[in-house]
Write a protein that binds this DNA or RNA. Sequence first.
DNA 1: CGCGGTTTTGAGAATCCTCAAAACCAGTGG
DNA 2: CCACTGGTTTTGAGGATTCTCAAAACCGCG
Lengths: 253, 253
Amino acid sequence: MPGQNGRAFSSRQYPCEKCPLRPLPVFREFEKQELAFVSTFKKGELAVDKGATVLVEGNHSAHLYTVLSGWAFRYKLMSDGRRQILNYSMPGDLIGLQGSLMGEMQHSVEALSPMLLCVFEREYLPELYRNHPGLAYDITWIASREERMLDENLLSIGRRTALERAAYLIAFISSRARAVGLNGKTPVRIPITQQHIADTLGLSLVHTNKTIRKLIDRKLIVWRDGGCEVVDGERLQELARWEGLGEDRRPLI
Amino acid sequence: MPGQNGRAFSSRQYPCEKCPLRPLPVFREFEKQELAFVSTFKKGELAVDKGATVLVEGNHSAHLYTVLSGWAFRYKLMSDGRRQILNYSMPGDLIGLQGSLMGEMQHSVEALSPMLLCVFEREYLPELYRNHPGLAYDITWIASREERMLDENLLSIGRRTALERAAYLIAFISSRARAVGLNGKTPVRIPITQQHIADTLGLSLVHTNKTIRKLIDRKLIVWRDGGCEVVDGERLQELARWEGLGEDRRPLI
DNA sequence: CGCGGTTTTGAGAATCCTCAAAACCAGTGG
DNA sequence: CCACTGGTTTTGAGGATTCTCAAAACCGCG
């Protein structure tokens, strides 16, 4: 049943055994039985359009997703409309864990590009914890990784200057994208607008624009096709005074 | 062996069965066998002085702690000394989970007051996951709760005005403290300096002082004995445009 | 060509910063 | 009891950053 509300449920297309992400070197090897369970845990796939809302703050979601392809962002709104983007999601990332654990979503998620999501049933989570301690550990690990990213973002918004912040954000997203193989011969195009950047950095749109322009003028990034590409990641990272991702292999649920 | 480095290891004083925190209504009931395991999981207690560093960024910690009493804060430093406080810890909170899962600590923790900590061995964590899925779930839940708090803090720093931010922070800490029964007849005294507040809100000390003063002048808080007390939590929350904690019962490891 | 979304520019105003010094306060030692 | 000390809070002032308002330019798309 395609098309409703920017969503389309498809029957499964990628069986977990042939997951296009799993072979990537960032993801740790899985036991055969772990893979088997994940496979039963997976209910199907969901295609969402660019701009579609995947999860809504305040809702009680029955599902949990892993991004197969595409980009999204997680955000919170204040009652008067102020928006804060909390983090970005890209292939391999889990979406909606907080909601699955705590009942109610405390943030919303919106697609930045067309996406393909693996859908998992929240109600199988207890079984996962009962019978697959390794996977349970992985899920905690993933939650902890998100926490680490938030720590870093908090440091950034709280203590970096506008220019450093912008440099950090773009270097950060680009590093993560690189880790999941989103760089072909040409660098990844990060599909965000300056409004998204502003809402991530805690700056106004106007000032964000002037800041981004500096990065462009210094030839650290380019802006094209409604998105941004990193030209010189090294200098970007240096400008941000950022130590880098420092991530090893990680699990993929 | 008391005294070294502001720490003192004591043999166990509070057996888990007589935990002074567990009876509080915020904490969910535990199964007998869960309690038994937590009891074996607990290695002893650690007393730390005010100002002592409990965990250091970059270190590989063998332990995991639960706060029995006292206050602490979690923070990150940039190479040039800028500090960002990420969150506060109070009785019932777990400390050092990130380090236990990911190997290396990505933040430091410092005591705001004398503290008593329950010490757990990190190496028993796999056993916990293997034999106590309920507790494993709880740990993930706790990680997720921390993530939720960080989301909220990020929204605050990114999108609230200085006055709203200060109001939010104090209302937030005070709500959490109230939940774990830190309010006697008189309101809790939050043992922080304005420098801590500045480093949490991402503001300078001078501006923080002027902002806090407004809260005092409006009789929303008082400042005394080197700390702050909430006078009117309702109006504080309203001023911050904050929805409140909205927390149900939670596990206590 | 017209349209909506996005980026860019300019300008004055508000917020927030740094620097610098004073006031305050608890604890320490004379 | 008093002076001294270090940490914390307070005040003032000028300057930098960032904001809001407003409008223009740009750009892909129907």
